[in-house]
Design a protein around this nucleic acid. Sequence first.
RNA 1: GGCCCCGUAGCUCAGCCGGAUAGAGCACCGGACUUCUAAUCCGGUGGUCGCAGGUUCGAAUCCUGCCGGGGUCGCCA
Length: 595
Amino acid sequence: MTEFHDLYAHIRAQVLAALQQVAPSLPDALLSKIEVTPAREPGQGDMASNVALVAAKAARQAPPKLATALVSKLQETPEIESVEAAGPGFVNMRLRPEAFRALLPVILRDGTAYGDSRIGAGAAVNVEYVSANPTGPMHIGHCRGAVVGDALANLLAKAGYSVTKEFYINDAGAQVAALAWAAYWRYLQAIGTPLSEEEFAKQVPGGLQYRGDYLIPVGEALAARYGESLAVDRRPAPPEGWFDTVREFAVAEMMRGIREDLDLLGVRQEAFVSERALVEAGAVDAAIERLGAAGLIYEGVLEPPKGKLPDDWEARPQTLFRAAEFGDDTDRPLRKSDGSNTYFANDIAYHAGKIARGAQVLIDIWGADHGGYVKRMQAAVRALAPDAILEIVLCQIVHVVRGGQPVRMSKRAGTYITLRDLLEEVGRDAVRFTMLTRKADAQMEFDLDQVVAQTRENPVFYVQYAHARCRSVLRLAAEMFGAEVVSDVGLAGAALDTLQAEPELAVLRRLAHWPRLAQAAALAREPHRIAFFLYDLASDFHILWNRGKDDSTLRFLQPDRLAETLARLALVAATAVVIRSGLSVMGVEPAEELR
RNA sequence: GGCCCCGUAGCUCAGCCGGAUAGAGCACCGGACUUCUAAUCCGGUGGUCGCAGGUUCGAAUCCUGCCGGGGUCGCCA
C-alpha cells in the first residue's frame, strides 16, 4: 500500500476521482465544498463524505442515487474496505485497518513535521501581535493576544505559509509623553528633589500618570547616568532640556522589560517596528501623500455620531480619508485639531510598510476594545494595495478568577496582575495552553486555581499526562528491549497487523485526523482547535491505557510477545509524536514525566 | 442611537463558509487500583441550541427583526 501523510486528503482525492467519472467537469467552486470528514458514529464507518449532497444538483441526480453511483466506483479503492450510501445521500466509508496502520511509520519518521502541509503555498504572512504601549510591564490582558498570535503564527508556518512574527512599538503618542513625565518624576526623586508628588503633578501637562513603582528603577538609572544634569537645583528643568532624553531612555527600559516578559512567555518575534521611527522617516507623510494622489483624501466635516454626543463635540473641518469607499461606515480623520497625525494615520503608514516589505496577508491580533477600528484599517489596506488582505483576529477580555471569585484588576488595590506574576504563579505552559482553550473572540474565564490543578478538568495536565504516560512506557520498553529497537526510527519498521483492538484503532483514527485538523485550523485562523484536538487524542489514549488495567493482555508491554509489543509501542510513540506536534504549535513543552 | 462580538445541559465551553440521533469537562449518582503512573477509566441523570419569522430536500450553523450580555463611537492606542 502506498504511503500518505494525509489519509483524509488521499481519500478525498479518490472521492473526487470517482465523481469525475460519474459526473465529469463540475466547476471547481463546487468541488471545493466537497469534504471527507471523520464519521460521527462508528456505525457509519470511519469517514463520511457529503459529495453526493453537494454535487447532486449540478450532476442532475438525486443525492442518494448519485451516492450509490459513487459507491460502486469507490469500492475499487485499495484503502477502502466497504462503502455505502446512507441517510440523505452521504457516502460512508470503512477503511482497511492497514490504511491507518500505514501512517505509523510515516509519523515516526516525520516526527513533529507530521501534519505539515502546503496549503499556504509559501504566501508571505505577517502576523502582528502584542503591540503594547511601552509604558509599563505587560499584564494579563496582553497575554491572550500574545499567545493567540504566537500560536497562530506557528500554525500558519506548519500549513506552509512564510510567516513573519511582528511587534509594533507604539512609541509615538501622548501615552509615551506621559511616560516621560512619570519617569522624570522618579528621576527627580532619585536625586532628592524637595518637591512633593502633587507639586510636581501640577506642572505636568495632562496630569501625572503611571505612578506605579516600576518606574523607580528607571529614575534611579537616569540619576546614575546623568547625575543632576537633567534638573535645575534638583527641581524640574524646562522640558526642552531633558524630555527627549528621558523619553527615549524610559521607552528603551520598558521595551527591555516587555521583551523579557515575552521571552518568559516563550514568545519570540523577529520584527519590532517603531511607530516613532516611521514618523521620523516620513513614512506617514508619504502614505498620506500617496492616498492623496489617488484622490482619497479631502478636507471635510464629519457628521456627528448618533446618540449621545461627547460634551465637547463641535463640527470642524478635518483631513479625511475616504474609508467609506472601501467598506467602512464613514470617512475617517487623519489629523487631530492640533495638526498632528491621528493614530490611524500612523497605522496606515505602518501597514503600508508591511506590504512594502513583502507581506501578502496581514493578520493583526487586537483586543476586542479595538473592534470599532477594524473596518477602517481594512479599508485603508484595500486602498493601499488591492492584492493584499488584512485580517483581524479580535481577542475578547479575560476575566481572572481565583476559586470561582473574580479577581479585581486594579493598580491601586494592588491586585493588578502582571504577566510576570501570572507566569510565576501558573507557569508558561499552563498559561499558553489555557489561553488557547477558548475561541479568541469568546470571553474567557481564567481560573488561577483550576489552571494549576492536576486533574482531568484541567486540559493542560490531561494532555501532558497522556504524553508522560507514553514516554513512561517507552522508557520501560527501552530498558527491556534496548534503546535502538524502541527509538522512533526503530519502531517505524515494526510489523503492525496485531493492532486491531477497537481502542487501538480509535487512537489510529485520531492520529490520521491531525493533518486535516491542522489545515482547517490554519485556514480558519483558529489555533484553539489544536487544544481541543489534543484533548481528544489524550482522551483516546487514556482509554486505551485503561484497557490494559481490565485485561492485562492489552497492556503495551508483553515481555513474551515481542512483535505485538513493538506494534503497540509504535502506536504509543506515534501518539507522543502527534501530541508534541500539536504542543509545539501551541508553544508548550511536552512533559516527560509528571510525578 | 450606529457599528462589532457573544447567547448551546445547573456551571465553564466545543460544534457554526447548511448535513445524519447537538458533544465534552465540571457538578450530581453508581462502579474499576496485587498500577506499563487511578493526576486515569467505565456507567447513569441532565437540552424549546435566547425569542419570532424567513431561505430549502435539510438550520445550533445562513438572512431579517426583537430580547439579553459585552465592546466601541473625531484630537487614547
